[in-house]
Simulated assay, not measured.
Amino acid sequence: MARPLVADIDLDALRHNYALARGLAGDSQALAVIKADAYGHGAVACARALESLPEGERPPAFAVACLEEAEALRLGGIESPIVLLEGIFEAAELARVEALGLWMAVHSEWQLQALLEHRPARPIPVWVKVDSGMHRLGFAPEQVESVWQRLAAVPEYATGLQLMSHFATADAVDAGYFETQLERMRDLAQRLKAPLCLANSPATLAWPQSHGSWVRPGVMLYGSDPLERPSEASRRLQPVMTLRSEIIALRDLAEGEPVGYAGRWRAPRPSRIAVVACGYGDGYDRHAVDGTPVLVAGRCTAIAGKVSMDMLTVDVTDIPEARIGSEVILWGRSRHGAVLSVDEVARHCDTISYTLLTGVLPRVPRRYHGMADPGTLVMNRT
Rank of each mutant, 00 (worst) to 15 (best):
G40P: 04
V316N: 15
E71I: 10
G370C: 04
V259W: 02
S353E: 08
A36P: 04
A189R: 02
Y368S: 04
I247T: 01
T242W: 10
I88T: 06
V126C: 07
Q209I: 12
A153Y: 12
G160P: 09
L357I: 07
Y354H: 11
D315L: 09
T382N: 15
R333T: 14
A2V: 06
Y39T: 03
G40S: 11
V307Y: 09
L53N: 11
Y157I: 05
P374A: 05
L84H: 03
L253D: 09
A2K: 07
S271P: 08
V339T: 15
A277H: 15
E93N: 07
Y177E: 13
A274P: 07
S334V: 03
E68C: 00
S271F: 06
L312N: 12
L151C: 10
L94K: 04
L115F: 13
P123R: 04
I9M: 05
F178N: 01
G370N: 01
C300Y: 03
A203Q: 04
E145I: 04
M371I: 01
I352N: 08
P239C: 08
R3C: 00
I9W: 03
A199C: 05
V126A: 03
Y18P: 09
A172D: 14
R299D: 13
G101S: 12
D131A: 11
E93I: 00
V276E: 07
I324T: 13
K306N: 15
H369Y: 12
G212N: 04
P270D: 15
V144W: 02
R191S: 11
A92P: 01
